[in-house]
Amino acid sequence: MRKRAKDRLPGFLLVLPSIILIAIFVYWLIYRNVATSLDQTVTRATKRVLNPGGLANYSKLLGDGEYQHALFNLLVLTVVFVAGTMFFGLLWAVLLEKGVKGEGFFRSVYLLPMAISFIAAGVVWRWLLSPGVGEQAVGLNQLLAMMGLERFQNGWWQSPTQFSMAAMAIPAIWQLSGYVMALFLAGFRGISEDQREAARIDGASEWQLYRHVLFPQLSPIALSALIIIGHMSMKMFDLIYAIAGQNSYKASVPATLMWTQLFAQNNPTAAAVNATILLVLVAIVVVPYLIYTSKSEKGTH
């Protein structure tokens, strides 16, 4: 149906305050940050060149070994974090999805960690992920020993392997699997009972039912969960800050490195470069998704 301009204007006016706020607080500030990242800076008293200015600021950071290490850590963290939350989220949703006594209780408990801030959870996870093994074992390593599983003891995120950052995903998975579960549960509820019925009647096993009937219908939810968890991982700061402190080489990611650049090295320009690259990385993932969803919606409207 065609609407007249008279009808459309009020809609625009109602959204206008939000448009202005988002324009200033998101887009104007992003512009300011990018502008800062291109600055040439020289220390005031000794005239030492901190940042050469322009795109050279970017090549300087990208060429820095420490930054590359942080980027690699971020990749490891993101892959494990996303895979872990998707796995547990889906598994829990399947377990609780149908006919379990006390379902509401279990759901609430699984969701509970999400209520706790990263900074609070980090306090206890710092203990649990202590790297000591054998006689020095505390936290999870001690628990493993108590269960007779000493051979699985390890240094967690401080293990001497390249992929140690994977362990930092454990607390993150603990916190957000419940949320992914809730998303999937909502998805399951959206599938009508008739479809399951029809599949069962057609002789499908439970596995076939999930594999061919239910899971395909959850793929839009899986995609949004993927995007949500993925972008959370990229900007994760609190948890690492709380668990590893601010100057840990093993646990450094761009977001924590930015903290060091900004404050320990007193170099806001380099921090702005780092933040801009982070934004671009997130945009590479998110923008196609947003365009895809907005297109597919136009199709359905």
């Binding site: 401080q158 140690s164 100057n247 840990s248 090295q265």
Partner: peptide, 19 residues
């Protein structure tokens, strides 16, 4: 300076895991 100290700390932190 703080900036130099930060670099030394990073190097020591790195050494702690690599030796």
């Amino acid at each position: 300076s703080l900036a130099w100290n930060t670099d030394i700390s990073t190097a020591i932190s790195k050494f702690y895991s690599t030796r």
